[in-house]
């Protein structure tokens, strides 16, 4: 099966006012990819993610979702596309005044015509998928950081999204939890058939699950490498990329 492009980024420039963060970004995310956005701290990875999910409008260039130019379509179609995205924010971003079950139920109640009982079943299922069954009535403040991440993931997959975005999913987790989260992401990708786009610094994750990547550079304000992380490690000659991928131990 040949891979279909899912998101195409063309000549994208990101800027806050006159301050350019990154420019001339060109890359394609294929279906079923686990696409990694890498780069040093402050190079604009999270900003790029915000552009991809439709939270920020690009200063220049286009973002295509399949055949649709995201910023050229009407609001309704844009919402339709955004609804098919599941996003896990850096700190979970669970709504703190709602229980975990309510957090997951809200999008379901908003976008489907399921009965409350069915929504409850689905919310329990999503929590079970991330290993949190029994925690339906807990508030986000009552559970640990790792559990909040997983609950955030449960909310992200509430509507069976086509694309899952992750903003540093394993930041702040111990190595074992991070590994379990990686496994969970892989399993969910395989069973839900979703495309995954991830911002991460975790080299272990990058090599373990990344199938494609771009590397953003702070100094030249553009992408300086793209490809599968393992190939990049072997073949990329750029010293910044090599240093990043080897934690500074350039061979």
């Amino acid at each position: 099966m040949s891979k279909q492009p899912h998101i195409i980024v063309n000549n994208l420039t990101m800027a806050y006012g006159d301050f350019i963060i990154q420019q001339n970004l060109n890359f394609t995310v294929n279906e079923d990819d686990i696409f990694i956005l890498m780069g040093g701290s402050g190079c604009g990875k999270s900003t790029l993610l915000r552009h991809l999910v439709g939270l920020k409008q690009p200063a220049k260039g286009t973002v295509f979702y399949r055949d649709t130019n995201f910023w050229q379509t009407n609001i309704q179609q844009r919402r339709e596309i955004m609804r098919q995205n599941g996003i896990l924010y850096q700190s979970g971003a669970l709504w703190s005044s709602m229980t975990l079950a309510e957090n997951i139920s809200l999008p379901l109640a908003e976008y489907t015509d399921l009965t409350p009982a069915e929504i409850k079943e689905l919310a329990s299922l999503k929590l079970a998928l991330v290993g949190l069954s029994g925690f339906e009535d807990y508030y986000p403040s009552e559970i640990s950081g790792g559990m909040q991440k997983r609950a955030g993931l449960a909310r992200a997959i509430a509507l069976d999204p086509k694309i899952l975005f992750f903003d540093e999913p394993s930041a702040g987790l111990d190595p074992i939890s991070a590994k379990l989260l990686d496994d969970l992401i892989l399993e969910l990708r395989d069973s839900l058939g979703a495309t995954i786009i991830m911002v991460t610094h975790e080299l272990a994750s990058i090599f373990a699950i990344g199938s494609n990547a771009v590397f953003l550079d702070t100094d030249s304000k553009t992408m300086i490498a793209s490809g599968a992380p393992k190939t990049l490690l072997k073949e990329c000659t750029d010293s910044t990329v090599q240093q990043f991928l080897t934690r500074g131990n350039t061979r």
């Binding site: 299922l125 079970a128 998928l129 290993g131 949190l132 069954s133 029994g134 925690f135 969970l184 399993e187 969910l188 395989d190 069973s191 839900l192 058939g193």
Partner: peptide
């Protein structure tokens, strides 16, 4: 896909 999701959902027993 269904099988692995079910396996995942039952992997961690209800506390």
């Amino acid at each position: 896909g269904v099988q692995s999701l079910i396996q995942l959902a039952t992997a961690v027993p209800l506390r």
